[in-house]
Design a protein around this nucleic acid. Structure first.
Length: 692
DNA sequence: ATTAGGG
DNA sequence: CCCTAAT
């Protein structure tokens, strides 16, 4: 093929003009087969899913598994590998966990942690104004990397504490790492090392953490692209303020090509359109599940965005793209996530009633920084290793007696969420924007952290009693945090980066950024032991204007909301589907979906021009011609886009969605389409003459 | 790697 | 956009 094409070019030095390509032999369609498969597999999938879910819940408690392979952490440069390893371990340990879990009391943290899934999504989509500009709202997050910096500051101290802690853990047993994700930054791990043990030193750490962050943050420069940095500092650093200088483009086509990728320039990221199609899960076939799974797998971590100038993030990075994709997917699946969350939340608690329901409650503390979090978890893991057996023992149910600690969480707060939205934006878009921002923060499955007097309690295996959270005890100082899961931190930044290609359409579109501080703090109000336990999640978290069926927001009904959370009937297939993912995360297996990057008008223009010249059926050439520099537009994409353009041109304007494409372009699309169709038809009838 | 189509 | 079959 290549040769052929080359020849074309060679001829006379000009490109073979519109030589229609003969259609290849008719290709069979195999849709039928798929459907059948779906049907067959459906039941199976469901079962598997359910089973997976059960396992996954348990699995979430990371602890035991890691006992062995601690060492690699340091070595593992690439997060991906690490993750896989971890996962594998987790799987292996599943059985174990399961057992231990049953016996162990479920601490509220665990339950929450496991069940809440969040996704990060970077772009907020808002319905953009068709006309343009700055209308689209965006979320700007400035998260500074508090953590990163903060970590350093606190590091030393923690180092000591960590060591001590490890010892303790080792001997006492217990610590379960909350996160199984191991990352390499040794230093950080240490520092963060958990304080959890209920140890006293923890105290010191906590304060530092928080205090340090702010100041430090400012100073510290986001390392940007390095993988490490991304891990460590999950904060989003999108630079919104990028220069939007676009190279001028000679013709539409060129335009399309240029900017894009290389420059990451761009600010032009277009906001991802909000997926309105929430309802889009009509069928639950295997495919659906697959998608879910994949989405589940995706981690979205807040990542550092590269500066426009600095890195070519966009250019060509497959991985990067994937990350973005992931984000997108999440978006789509998010809504269902909520349901899932609720569902899950519920399960752990009620089923294992032996466990605790709640505990006492109290205040909220600051959220820890993402980075720290990550590190901590890391450290924890390491420390935890070896002690696993113990842990189990400790956790035994009997430890928790009759006293139940009850607590109610009034709300979870999401710190530092900066949202900028045009005055002209609709309330609906505002809601969405907020939702998205929150979602982004919560991106994956957030972990719930328990803090006592500002100190994190890391050991999940400890009983409340052991941790000092006892009936009527000092619950006042107990607080919960919602933090991003470390796992997710590894992933590439959601979206902002992508420089979309032409700036034409996107000019001023703001990027959405997530606040650097991912973790949200939860405020708990204390109640007497008698008070009903209720967990209220903030409206933001729980429901966005769109989907959440349940009204968690109403303040007054604490109980009700709690019920609501639990009450969600386990019918959501997606929820089920997601579980398996957690269990067996075969991330490697299912690549994430690419981030959605709607074609801008400029791109469409370029495409139309190219197709007018080259005709349909020569997508590779079209790509080369008009989108050569747009790494994210493959010929398949172009072909697909053309397909949709043709469709769009045929439907009524009212039915069209997304950024409106000028009618003129659509007309050209139709004309080119019909024209080339005819040519092809003719060619079919009589073989084309030799090109040269 | 490309093209064509269905999903 | 993804996935696949057929090239």
């Amino acid at each position: 093929m290549v040769l052929q094409k080359r020849l074309d070019y060679a001829c006379g030095g000009y490109r073979a003009p519109a030589m229609p390509h003969l259609p290849r032999s008719a290709r069979g369609k195999r849709s039928a087969r798929k459907k059948v498969e779906d049907n067959q597999t459906y039941a199976f999938d469901l079962l598997a899913t359910i089973a997976g879910k059960l396992l996954s819940e348990i699995k979430s408690s990371p602890s035991p598994c890691n006992s062995t392979g601690t060492s690699n952490a340091a070595a593992g440069r690439d997060a991906a590998k690490q993750e896989q390893i971890d996962e594998e371990k987790s799987l292996k340990c599943e059985g174990f966990d399961w057992l231990s879990c049953n016996e162990a009391v479920f601490s509220p943290e665990n339950a929450l942690e496991k069940h809440i899934t969040y996704k990060l999504k970077e772009n907020s989509n808002v319905p953009k104004d068709s006309s343009s500009g700055p209308a689209s709202p965006f979320i700007k997050s400035d998260l500074s990397d508090e953590d990163a910096i903060g970590g350093d500051g606190s590091r030393i101290e923690h180092g000591v504490g960590a060591a001590a802690e490890k010892c303790i853990k080792g001997s006492l047993s217990s610590s379960s790492a909350e996160s199984y994700d191991r990352k390499e930054d040794g230093g950080k791990k240490l520092l963060v090392a958990e304080q959890q043990v209920a140890g006293n030193f923890m105290d010191r750490n906590a304060p530092y953490k928080y205090s340090l962050d702010d100041p430090l943050v400012m100073d510290v420069k986001p390392p940007l692209v390095s993988s490490d940095s991304s891990v460590e500092a999950p904060l989003y650093r999108n630079n919104i303020s990028r220069n939007y200088s676009f190279p001028k483009q000679e013709d539409g086509m060129d335009l399309a090509a240029d900017k894009d990728d290389d420059e990451n320039s761009s600010g032009c990221t277009h906001p991802t359109p909000v997926a309105n199609k929430t309802s889009r899960m009509p069928r639950i076939g295997d495919r659906r599940i697959r998608k879910l799974m994949s989405s589940k797998l995706r981690k979205v971590a807040p990542t550092v965005l590269q500066d426009a100038g600095t890195s070519n993030y966009d250019v060509e990075q497959k991985p990067a793209l994937r990350g973005k994709r992931m984000c997108y997917t999440r978006q789509r699946t998010q809504r269902s996530s909520f349901k899932r969350r609720k569902l899950f939340d519920h399960c752990p608690v009620s089923p294992y009633d032996g466990g605790i329901y709640g505990e006492g409650l109290s205040k909220m503390s600051e959220s820890s920084r993402i980075k720290l979090e990550t590190d901590d978890s890391h450290a924890t893991l390491c420390g935890a290793n070896g002690a696993s057996s113990f842990m189990t023992g400790q956790n035994c149910c009997y430890e928790l007696p009759d006293y139940h600690v009850k607590l109610s969480i009034k709300s979870f707060k999401v710190p530092e969420l900066v949202i900028e939205i045009p005055e002209t934006a609709t309330v609906g878009s505002l809601k969405r924007t907020v939702l998205e921002a929150v979602t982004a923060i919560l991106g994956g499955r957030p972990r719930v952290g328990v803090l006592q007097e500002g100190k994190k309690v890391r050991d999940d295996n400890k009983t409340l009693r052991q941790a000092g959270i006892t009936y009527g005890d000092k619950l006042d100082n107990l607080s919960f945090t919602m933090e991003p899961n470390p796992e997710e931190a590894l992933d590439p930044p959601p979206s902002s980066e992508d420089p979309d290609f032409l700036g034409l359409a996107c000019a001023p579109e703001p990027l959405a950024r997530m606040p650097p501080i991912a973790p949200a703090a939860a405020a708990v109000d204390k109640r007497g032991p008698d008070s009903t336990e209720s967990v209220q999640t903030c409206p933001e978290m729980d429901h966005d204007s769109f989907h959440s069926p349940i009204d968690a927001s109403s303040p007054e009904k604490t109980t009700a909301s709690a019920l609501a959370l639990v009450a969600v009937p386990p019918m959501d297939v997606e929820a089920l589907a997601m579980v398996p993912l957690g269990n067996k995360p075969k991330r490697s297996e299912t690549p994430q979906r690419r981030v959605r990057r709607p074609f801008s008008v400029a791109e469409v223009e370029a495409l139309v021009q190219a197709v007018e010249k080259l005709g349909t059926g020569r997508w590779r050439d079209v790509k080369l011609r008009a989108f050569e520099n747009a790494k994210h537009r493959t010929y398949v994409d172009l072909k697909d886009k053309w397909k949709t353009l043709v469709h769009t041109a045929r439907i009524s304007p009212q039915q069209r969605r997304g950024e409106p494409v000028p009618q003129e372009l659509l007309d050209r699309v139709l004309s080119a389409h019909s024209s080339w169709s005819q040519k092809q038809a003719k060619l079919l009838l009589k073989p084309p003459a030799p090109l040269c």
